[in-house]
């Protein structure tokens, strides 16, 4: 056990599974660091953010495949390879590039098990980085997990820390269904204690990072950390919060969310994806339908506006949820007064 970064935790998960199971392969743009390229340096980078560094050297060109810049072809190839016996981990780099290969994911990989009467398995993992806060502008900053969550047949994972990332990625690689594994690009240097051994965190089981009496906060990915920062400040002001990290948006741990709302009676949802039809909307509907009588105040969502992610850093900060906005939302639900109908 030692402190590891989000990047190292993800690398270690792939490395351990590649050692354990020869069917696990890696493919994507630059995952092998260019396989030498014109510089002649093999395994130079390990992907644009260094996540796959060292895998080419250890496992060689047959298991770590640099692909052409054509997402439709290699994501399709990965889906086919999964259906025929390999366990590919394909990297889409920026999740925004899904537009180029959505048919392969939505109409092919996600549907194989269903269309073939349960006889086909598709143990495919698609890794991609997502999220704003990196000044990467509108085409490289989206948080598209609602898009995947919308499609039956996909599992969607959003790790919130290095420990979570390693356990959830190993679970994803061992899962027999297509899994979309989304890494927030601002988190790669976050560090925490991560075991050296392989371990798995099951899908569909939310993690409570803290338990409180007054307000339930549901947050995803990097927003979990911000929710905890806000909850720390609120605790000093006498407001105690439960913070739920659902870990996966599909499957979604509805029971834990409903249990916690039943306990606290107040709900704030923090979601950095575009607000229409996002997870905040989805969970709001769930709670309104299943736990209406438990609510002491309207549900509050901490969400960005319905615009592309701005490039200008002041606007990007304004766009994103942050700890101060979460704190304000929690105070708003705490201060809500029920008015009698006239």
């Amino acid at each position: 056990m030692s402190k590891k970064s989000f990047r190292q935790a993800i690398n270690e998960a792939m490395r351990l599974e590649m050692r354990r199971d020869p069917r696990v392969i890696i493919m994507g743009e630059d995952v092998a660091g260019g396989q030498g390229g014109s510089s002649g340096v093999v395994d130079a980078w390990g992907g644009v953010l260094g996540v796959t560094k060292g895998l080419y050297t250890e496992f060689g060109p047959e298991r770590v495949l640099d692909t052409p810049i054509t997402e439709a072809s290699y994501i399709g190839a990965a889906a086919g390879a999964a259906a025929t016996g390999l366990r590919p981990v394909a990297e889409l780099m920026f999740v925004d590039f899904v537009g180029c290969c959505l048919d392969q994911i939505m109409n092919q990989a996600a549907k194989f098990r269903y269309m073939f009467g349960g006889k086909a398995r598709t143990p495919l993992v698609i890794r991609a980085m997502f999220g704003a806060g990196f000044n990467a502008a509108a085409q490289h900053s989206q948080a598209l997990y609602p898009l995947f969550t919308h499609i039956p047949g996909l599992k969607v994972v959003i790790p919130s820390s290095p420990y979570e990332a390693k356990g959830l990625l190993i679970e994803a690689i061992r899962d027999d269904d297509p899994v979309i594994f989304l890494e927030h690009k601002v988190m790669y240097d976050d560090e925490e204690e991560v075991p050296d051994e392989a371990y798995t965190i099951p899908f569909g089981e939310a993690n409570l990072t803290r338990e409180g009496d007054d307000v339930t906060i549901v947050a995803f990915g990097r927003m979990v950390k911000l929710a905890n920062e806000a909850a720390d400040k609120l605790e000093r002001q006498g407001i105690s919060c439960t913070v739920i990290d659902p870990r996966t948006t599909s499957p979604l741990d509805r029971d834990t969310i409903l249990d916690c709302v039943a306990d606290t009676g107040r709900l704030v949802i923090v979601d950095e994806s575009s607000p229409r039809c996002n997870m905040a909307a989805d969970i709001s509907a769930l709670v309104a339908e299943e736990a209406f009588d438990a609510l002491k105040a309207p549900i509050r969502r901490v969400i960005p506006p319905h615009t592309p992610v701005p490039f200008a850093s002041v606007l990007e900060s304004l766009y994103l949820p942050d700890a101060a906005k979460i704190e304000a939302a929690v105070k708003a639900v705490m201060n809500h007064k029920v008015t009698e109908a006239a």
């Binding site: 420990y163 356990g167 075991p195 051994e197 392989a198 371990y199 798995t200 965190i201 409570l208 338990e211």
Partner: peptide, 14 residues
């Protein structure tokens, strides 16, 4: 909760 979490972390190891 932390104590339970420590036990769960151990039990998740392969």
């Amino acid at each position: 909760r932390k104590m339970a979490d420590d036990v769960l972390r151990y039990k998740r190891l392969d």
